[in-house]
């Protein structure tokens, strides 16, 4: 019982991390750092968000599907499916699952830029997105 109380207190501490972070984002940023990323640059993340590449004949960027108003839903450019907002202020599910974040970075970087993103690019994007 005492143990449980102690555990709850520790969890409470975690829950009290500053607004622009989640346990999952902390884990990932530490991982990117250990893999060679330098200090994350949110301004670079913001610029990269709208950086266009031509992939399979189509001009693509992150904003193609997600838009640039992070409090609003986006739309998949091919299927039309609604994509829930990227801002954690309006969508509490965002940035809470390490595996999910990594999975979609992998897929969407390939879709939008035709290649995987570097750890630095991912650190920049994540830091930028957490602040939205």
């Amino acid at each position: 019982m005492k143990r449980l109380t102690a555990m709850l207190m520790v969890l409470g501490l975690f829950a009290a991390v500053p607004a622009h972070a989640t346990p999952a984002s902390d884990t990932l940023l530490a991982k990117y750092k250990s893999e060679g990323a330098k200090a994350p640059d949110a301004a670079k993340g913001k610029k990269d968000w709208t950086r266009e590449e031509v992939v399979e004949g189509e001009k693509m960027s992150c904003a193609t599907c997600h838009g640039s108003d992070f409090s609003k839903p986006g739309k998949h450019h091919k299927t039309g499916k609604v994509i829930e907002p990227m801002s954690m202020k309006v969508n509490a599910e965002r940035y809470t699952d390490v595996k999910k974040i990594e999975k979609w970075f992998k897929r969407n970087c390939k879709d939008a830029w035709g290649r995987e993103c570097t750890v630095q690019e991912k650190a920049d994007f994540l830091t930028f997105l957490l602040a939205q």
Partner: peptide
């Protein structure tokens, strides 16, 4: 799935 109708669904 890596090339799924023009999308990556790995």
């Amino acid at each position: 799935l890596a090339r799924h109708f023009g999308s990556n669904a790995e």
